[in-house]
């Protein structure tokens, strides 16, 4: 059981959580717009069902309500670090495949990449607040992208953006859970025990 929060820690957490909720909400809106633009620009069918894409963190989770706060933060952090690498790969592919043909999509992609990086940093701040060790990043960086055909690249991009859009919703929910005052003390629960 984590030691009961000091009021300042609880206040700081609530502040970080509410800022995180706004950041995730904005990110989700931008990702949804980017997804629409991506689907149109890549000539894809919005209803295309994309099999789980290797290396893309799945937002789907079972017994979500039973997760502890630390689990939530750590899983979020791992996911957004992965998305940072995936979006960077997509940006590189975009330049390679389209050059300046569609700079608009490239800019939107870069903007979302920035938000993902910012959100990952925000999560690290929350973990620091709870004096939780920040897991190190994989030394040798993300695995190189698999050699894919152009269509597979397009579907992979679709899969990445869809998962990211769902992760953004999950993150908002997770942060709401973290921001909840714990029933006993009325202060926000220590990360370990938040339901």
């Amino acid at each position: 059981m984590a030691a009961a929060d000091s009021p300042s820690t609880a206040l700081r957490r609530r502040d970080l959580c509410s800022r995180g909720i706004r950041l995730a909400g904005k990110m989700r809106a931008d990702v949804v717009d980017l997804l629409d633009a991506y689907v149109e620009q890549q000539g894809l069918d919005a209803s295309a069902s994309v099999a789980a894409v290797e290396g893309v963190p799945l937002a789907a989770v079972e017994r979500w309500d039973e997760q502890t706060g630390t689990q939530r933060l750590l899983e979020n952090l791992a996911a957004y670090r992965a998305f940072r690498a995936l979006l960077a790969q997509m940006l590189e592919e975009q330049r390679e495949q389209l050059g300046e043909a569609d700079a608009g999509l490239g800019r939107a992609l870069a903007a979302v990449l920035l938000q993902v990086s910012a959100f990952a940093y925000h999560l690290e701040e929350l973990l620091r607040l709870e004096s939780r060790g920040i897991p190190g990043e994989e030394e040798d960086g993300p695995p190189p992208p698999p050699r894919l055909s152009r269509f597979e690249q397009k579907l992979r991009g679709l899969g990445v953006l869809r998962e990211l859009a769902h992760w953004a919703v999950r993150s908002v929910r997770d942060l709401r859970q973290l921001a909840k005052p714990s029933p006993a003390s009325g202060a926000a629960p220590g990360l370990a025990e938040s339901p």
Binding site: A48, L98, D102, R150, F151
Partner: peptide, 14 residues
């Protein structure tokens, strides 16, 4: 610019 997609829709795959 992103090419024309040629999609083969199978029962539970693309």
């Amino acid at each position: 610019s992103s090419g024309t997609n040629v999609v083969c829709r199978l029962e539970n795959a693309w």
